[in-house]
Design a protein around this nucleic acid. Sequence first.
DNA 1: GATGATGTAGACAGGTCTGTCTACGTCAGG
DNA 2: CCTGACGTAGACAGACCTGTCTACATCATC
Lengths: 187, 187
Amino acid sequence: MAHPQTAGDAYSARDRILFTAHDLFYRDGVRATGIDRVIAESGVAKLTFYRHFPSKNALILAYLDYRHRRWMLWFADALSRHGGEVSAIVPAVGEWLRDPAYRGCAFINTVGELGGSLPEVVEIARAHKADVTTAIAAVLPPSRQRAKLAQAIALAVDGAIVRAQFDGTPDAALEALKRIVASLLKN
Amino acid sequence: MAHPQTAGDAYSARDRILFTAHDLFYRDGVRATGIDRVIAESGVAKLTFYRHFPSKNALILAYLDYRHRRWMLWFADALSRHGGEVSAIVPAVGEWLRDPAYRGCAFINTVGELGGSLPEVVEIARAHKADVTTAIAAVLPPSRQRAKLAQAIALAVDGAIVRAQFDGTPDAALEALKRIVASLLKN
DNA sequence: GATGATGTAGACAGGTCTGTCTACGTCAGG
DNA sequence: CCTGACGTAGACAGACCTGTCTACATCATC
């Protein structure tokens, strides 16, 4: 869950803006983070920013798009590292929830912040959750119930995401998630 | 899920402020809603507002406290109206998710908005979720696993809350929730 | 060597936000 | 009748936010 090769140190202005925006938006929220802050921390001029992104809303959408691509890559990798089967789901999620920078799901948080005023956000979030569900389905054993089962597990994962964001530690969330997944697989 | 007796029309200034803040904060988010808006819509003077609430943050905390009390009352009522047993959980939650004013969980949304900058919010949200879990446990059949089971169900309810907020309709969320609850009870 | 794309630095306008302040009204209880 | 609690109306300060603008630098390509 880190930006690509921080050592490379030769990023385009657009990428630096996007990486900085990602970190700030995710950590502090999109509304609490001002454009000026993003500009200052990415070491870019204001005009350069507005040449790449016509408005803050455009940056927010680019942030979510980037977040989605990065998170999906990480998730696929984590699943395969943990065996690529059903049993990989809880450990993979656990890895994320234990990340010190963990602050919940970027899409849940952003929808909560401006779902009402920026409808594209809801659309992107829905697409993200659909892709997560598909990724979960891919590690389930084939059966007629696979799609429904993946939906139920994905929903439980969202529950764990929220609970871990509230509690200081992800332990209770992971235990409950594990219980749900195990129970679903037995039926 | 409505304010107490709207017909009574003789509320204190403090209550009018609180009811208005509740509706605006829940619908539009706490950060997107300005104090001036709350003041204008509750038909109160600015000085009056600041006499009752020393700051916007204080109003936010009062909002969450009020929301918590009202929601718990509603939930207990809904559970008992649906039979007061395990089978009441999904229909009760469904009632809420179908409410036209439904915009997700006030606590999840507010933590997402300012969990970082206002730690009391996280504390209140955690206490709320703990109370919800207790209310769920109260309709479960007694067993050694009751507390753990209630935790798992509460986590799944949070998942359903989030999913219903994303999708236009709560149907998929309720179906998945139902599946999880049924599965947990069989083991 | 001219040109255009891309970059930096930073002033500025116009809006919105929170919180304070002045000035005035109403009314119940002693 | 008077005093203090509580209310209204609205100006104001100071901060912060987005987005535009001027003026200048760098550099690859034709």
